[in-house]
Amino acid sequence: MISADTILFVLMLVSLVNLARYLTALRSLIYVMREAHPLLYQQVDGGGFFTTHGNMSKQFKLYSYLKTKEYHHHHDPVFTSKCARVRELFILTMALLGVTLLAAFIL
């Protein structure tokens, strides 16, 4: 039988890999956003998004933009596909982190 430690370790490993995928997709989205949607790029502080002095309120602007699916009205298909991918990966990452935390307290 598989031990609880092994299950928890695998869940944490899968969550970390998925978090890395999400951050990579987010970085790619911000890079594409510079050309496709320069106003949003400035509003979310695209150049300083991943720095330590990044503005959280500007980062939440991107979160609300993706949450409300405002990107559906954009003309660039590459930008809209990257937005959809980041949104899906964010949902998956949060679900995996929730399952991992739940498993950590149960096991």
Rank of each mutant, 00 (worst) to 15 (best):
P77C: 04
H74T: 09
Y71F: 15
L39C: 00
H73M: 07
V78R: 11
A36C: 11
H37V: 08
H73R: 14
S28N: 13
G46K: 05
M33R: 06
I30L: 15
H72K: 11
N55Y: 02
G48S: 14
Q43K: 13
L66N: 01
V32P: 00
H73C: 00
K69T: 08
Q59D: 00
P38F: 04
V44H: 02
N55T: 09
P38N: 06
G54C: 06
V32K: 12
R34I: 01
K69S: 11
F49Q: 08
F60L: 12
D45L: 03
Y41I: 03
H74L: 11
I30F: 06
G54N: 12
L62A: 03
F50A: 03
Y41K: 03
V44K: 02
H72F: 06
T51P: 03
S57P: 00
H53Y: 09
M56C: 00
Y65P: 01
V44A: 04
H72R: 13
G46S: 08
L29D: 08
F49M: 07
F49S: 09
H73I: 01
S57E: 15
D45A: 14
M33C: 15
I30H: 05
V78L: 14
V78K: 09
V78A: 07
Y65M: 02
G54H: 13
M33W: 04
G46I: 07
H75N: 15
L66E: 02
Y41S: 08
P38A: 06
H37G: 00
S64P: 00
V78C: 01
P38I: 06
Q43A: 12
V44T: 10
H53Q: 14
S57W: 10
S64I: 05
Y65K: 04
H37W: 03
R34P: 00
K58D: 04
D76S: 15
E35H: 11
G48F: 09
T51N: 13
E35W: 12
E35K: 13
A36V: 07
V32D: 13
F49R: 06
H73N: 13
D76I: 03
N55R: 13
Y63W: 05
Q43T: 07
I30S: 06
T52R: 11
M33H: 04
T51D: 15
T68I: 02
H53G: 11
M56Q: 12
Y71H: 11
Q42G: 08
L66V: 03
L62D: 04
F49H: 10
F60E: 10
Q59K: 14
F49T: 08
G54Y: 07
Y63Q: 08
H53T: 14
M56D: 10
Y41P: 02
S57I: 13
H75W: 06
L66C: 02
Y63F: 08
Y31T: 12
D76G: 03
Y31M: 02
V32Y: 07
F60W: 07
D45N: 14
Y63A: 04
K69M: 10
P38S: 07
S28A: 15
Q43H: 07
F60V: 02
E70D: 08
P77L: 05
S28G: 04
H72V: 10
F60M: 12
G47D: 08
V32Q: 12
E35C: 01
Q43R: 14
H74A: 13
G47H: 05
Y41T: 02
Y41V: 01
M33A: 07
I30R: 05
